[in-house]
Amino acid sequence: MSDSLTRAEPVSSEPFAAQGVTITLAPPMARLSLRARDRATLEDLLGRKLPAKIGATAGEIACLGPDEWLLRSAQGAAIPLGEGLPLAVTEISERAVCLIVEGPRAAEVLMAGCPLDLELFASGRATRTIFETVEIILIRSGENRFEVEVWRSFAPWLQLALTTAAAQLR
């Protein structure tokens, strides 16, 4: 993005490994908040299908609320802003970072502070929820892989909480 300015991440990108789980900072990605009362207006704008059910994902897009979708992509795709249309596209690429919690004991680590029943949280699901007092978006991107989106100023706390919980596994 810039020739002269370098990025700074809020947490170390050094992976953390414990018995049965690794915690890694995901590379930067583009994020957009997509909002519309009528899903079709967004689908027309983007030229792609959106998941209909809250909590579902379709490829790069997760449905977080009745009128809210989160698009995350590795490459920043140019998305039209849809000026004047009854919808909202908002750039939030740098609002959050993503911690990837992966391994057979990943769910156990997350349940240290997340009240969801992750055994019943199927692969492919995504939801906004909470880890102790910190809001997160949790995406299960594989049987043993969770992606945790967290606002950048909370990321150091969450990374410490997750690595502490992982180190405490017996």
Partner: peptide
Amino acid sequence: LNVWLTSTTEQW
């Protein structure tokens, strides 16, 4: 109203 709110505190 056709308007949506997004927190961008941490975007910038």
